[in-house]
Simulated assay, not measured.
Amino acid sequence: MNTPPSQRLGAGTPRLSLNRWTLRTTPIQEFLEAAASHGIDAVGLWRQDVEEVGLDALRRRADDAGLRVSSLCRGGFLTVADETARAASLEDNRRAIDEAAALGAPTLVMVVGGITREDKDISAARARVAENIAALAPYAETAGVTLALEPMHPMFTADRAVIATLDQALDIAEGTGSDAVGVVVDTYHVWWDPALEQAVARAGEAGRLLSYQVCDWNLPLAAEPLFSRGYMGDGFIDVPAITRLVTAAGYTGDIEVEIFNEDVWATPADTATAIVAERFEQLVLPYATPEHEDDHPFS
């Protein structure tokens, strides 16, 4: 198994990692500098950054800013039925694994893919995800990278992820028999799940809780619902309660703040980063240590 996240933590703002898409429209160098200037020592990067800057240059920029890379987003989109398209998808995911390894990112976040109007067999699509993740697992093991399957809110099932619950993701991860496959708990996507408490505990017991991402659920939904994420405390998610669940399950790694919101993107990077750090210290960090656990996090 790879080095536990708790052994990869640095000395900056405890546990906080700033996901690149929280400041999506900010130039990459300004993003890195904003994170570093606020005492954040980890960032979650996207493959678009690799394409824009170049793999080696991006690693150097992060290193020069004193930043670790907590995750790379994203791999996945593994539901295609056509064999030629499947082969291309697997090859692209191997490249993503290589990129994560080169960046020093322990985890590649996997958005598994949706269905099409032509092929609406969702059960078959889920089966292909399981098959393809199992095919990628040995490559990830060799590279020293973990694959974190991301269940997404059911409204994204058609176009982004046929996995909607943490239990579904865990079934696939466990089915691979590989320690390199696990799950990411993203508050935006899982907060509604009535089985969340048991599923998070299951992930922890199985050693498959690889990443934790936080934001809030804002209303009214944006025209693009994916952009309805907000700063913690602005919406309807009980972030402290979910953080206690994740902590009780044994997760001690980086906690990424991942916000997709056009108003946040329009905010100066320094201001937005300061708000993220403040809300993290108020609503996440106090509940991310074992001494603040309780027996019933949702009570």
Rank of each mutant, 00 (worst) to 15 (best):
V80E: 12
A148G: 07
L72T: 08
E278D: 13
V145G: 02
R24Q: 14
G177V: 11
R229W: 07
A88L: 15
W21V: 13
S123N: 14
L58H: 07
E281G: 13
A105F: 02
D238I: 08
E262Y: 15
P290L: 03
A102E: 13
V111I: 14
V43W: 07
R279G: 04
E278Y: 00
V69A: 11
A134V: 04
R74E: 15
Y231M: 14
A57N: 12
S6H: 13
A277I: 08
A87T: 14
D234A: 12
P4V: 09
V239W: 00
Y287Q: 11
S299K: 13
G76I: 06
T79S: 08
Y251Q: 08
P27D: 12
L209K: 05
R244P: 05
A85W: 12
A134Y: 05
T187K: 00
D179T: 13
G182K: 03
V111R: 04
A11D: 14
R95G: 01
W265A: 07
W217A: 13
F298P: 00
Y188F: 15
W265E: 04
Y188A: 04
A62P: 09
A266G: 06
F227T: 14
R208N: 05
R8F: 09
W46I: 15
S6Y: 12
D263C: 10
P225I: 00
G39W: 04
A124P: 11
H153K: 11
S211G: 06
V183L: 02
Q198I: 13
L285H: 12
V162H: 02
A65S: 12
H189G: 01
P4H: 09
A35F: 11
D270C: 02
G177I: 05
G230Q: 07
A42N: 06
A277D: 13
R208T: 06
A199D: 10
P138K: 09
T165F: 02
G204C: 03
T25M: 14
I163M: 00
I163G: 00
A125H: 11
A34F: 08
G10I: 02
R208W: 08
A158E: 14
A169E: 01
D270L: 09
R8T: 13
H296D: 14
P27Y: 02
L170V: 01
A169M: 05
D234M: 02
R160V: 05
I242Y: 00
S228G: 04
D179K: 07
V69D: 00
A11G: 12
T25R: 14
L108C: 08
L221N: 04
N93L: 09
S228I: 00
A223Y: 06
A36F: 10
S123Y: 10
E83G: 00
E256R: 04
M152R: 13
V264P: 05
V183N: 01
A269I: 01
